[in-house]
Each structure stands twice: as structure tokens, then as C-alpha cells.
Design a binder for these strands. Sequence first.
DNA 1: CCGGACGCTAACCCAGAGGTTAGCGCTTTC
DNA 2: GAAAGCGCTAACCTCTGGGTTAGCGTCCGG
Lengths: 127, 127
Amino acid sequence: MRKENSTNAINERILNGLCQTAHTLSVIGGRWKPTILWRLLEGKMRYHELKKSISGISERVLVLQLRELENDQLITRIVYPEVPPRVEYELTPLGRSLESLLEHMCSWGEMHRDATRQAGELAVSKN
Amino acid sequence: MRKENSTNAINERILNGLCQTAHTLSVIGGRWKPTILWRLLEGKMRYHELKKSISGISERVLVLQLRELENDQLITRIVYPEVPPRVEYELTPLGRSLESLLEHMCSWGEMHRDATRQAGELAVSKN
DNA sequence: CCGGACGCTAACCCAGAGGTTAGCGCTTTC
DNA sequence: GAAAGCGCTAACCTCTGGGTTAGCGTCCGG
């Protein structure tokens, strides 16, 4: 038995229980999750459309993130029993309820980037 | 030389550049950062106070997260040149501008937890 | 003169997120 | 009959965030 495993994981669970902010992070905190959610906010999409519209993501990771989002009940996976297989992903109401939060994060990010870039440029041009 | 390192890191940089939401996540996404920010929203705190008020965090990680927050210009580190050393951490205006976002995340997290817990309980009690 | 408060830093370790490559089973198109 | 579209899965590797342990330099209280 190896050391009553990982304070790391334990800490994470405790925090997610105590702090709803941490919980939210654990839900949308995957590298590609915001991107996926943005895409789906525009309407349901097929697996391959998602794949092509998100440049840089690998299939494995895309599937993993989709599964996690599904588990967290943010998206639904709809399989059409058709000849060439067809699978669509769609936001649940819970998923759509993220829209305003995502927008909030996005605009804060923009503001923060501008604010810090300015500071950087000032430091450079201060000659 | 080892393989033009890490698509991982590259992807992260690209995403943070393109997607402000991802950028925001990179700023507040540390395990303990939300907790630290919540504490500091109530007023400036000394290093040891923070340490004691956040149970489970290790000194190393606390320092790391504080340094990152400082780099991102969310907090200021104030050193008083005193006999027993004294250091205080305080939110910058930029840091305080996170308050509404944190609240938003917090309430969404609560809502999401309730929604999913219900579903879980239903599944259990459905006998 | 011993220990503790204070605010750290250094050295090390490990689990897990994310990436790479290959392949599957079915179908349509050339 | 070869190749490509579709939606995946399996096996493997790498890097990094977070955790553990130890210690430092200055001071004060007992």
C-alpha cells in the first residue's frame, strides 16, 4: 500500500466541496472546455465539425472533454442510428446557463489583458 | 535537443492568446487562488494569517500562488522593514475587479451542484 | 541558550492532464 | 479494391502543478 494516496486529490475534493468557485473551476477548467462550450452555444454540432472547428485539439482529448461535460450534465450526446454514424452534441439548459458566466470571464480576460499589456508597454517605452 | 518542446505548452499559449476565457482561467485557475482571493477581498492580510486561515495549503504552494497573482497584477506585496519581519498582501484594483466574477462563479457552482445532486438523488431514490 | 514566530527558499517526488500514434468497423466514392 | 469519412478506443509518453521535508536568518520570551 502506498502512502494513503495523494493529498493532492484529497485537497481537491475538499476544496470542491467547500468552495463553489473551485467547484465551478473543476467543471469548466479543462484546457479546451471553454472553446467547446462557445462552439456549442451557437448550436448543436457533430463530432467531426467540432474536431475541425477547434484547431490543435487531439481526438482523444476532445472525446475526454466531451465525456466530462456530459457527466457534468452540461451537454447531451445524441446518437442517430444511421448508416454513416452520426452523433451530435448539444448544450443542456444547465450548459446554456453558463453563457453569461463565460461572457463575464471573457470580458474580464480582455480587460485584464489590456490592463497588463499597457503596463508592459509602459515599462518598455519608458526611455 | 528534445523534440521542439511540448505541443502542450504551445497549445496553451495559443489558446490564451485567442480565447480570453482561457486567459482568465490561466489567471485564476490555480487550485488555491480563488480561496486566496476570497480572503483578500475582506482586506489585506499578512502571510502567516493567510497560511493559517487556509487549511491544507503548503507554504511552498502558497508562496507560488501569491507570486503568480502578483505577476498578474492582482495583488501587491507590501514589505515593512521592521524588526520581526512583516509582509502584507493586498488586492490591487485589478484584483478587486474580480469580485463580481468570483461571485458569479460561486453562485453558478452552487446552482450546478444542486441541480446535479438532485439528479443523483433521484437516480438513487427511484426504486 | 532553547525554542518558537516570521516569511521564506531549495531539493526532491508523484499523479494526472494532455499529447502522439495506431487501429477498428462500417460505408460511400472514385 | 483503395481511399477517405465517421466516431471512436487503446497504449503509451511527457511535463507540470502541487505536495513533502528540511532549513535559513533575525528576533523575542522564558
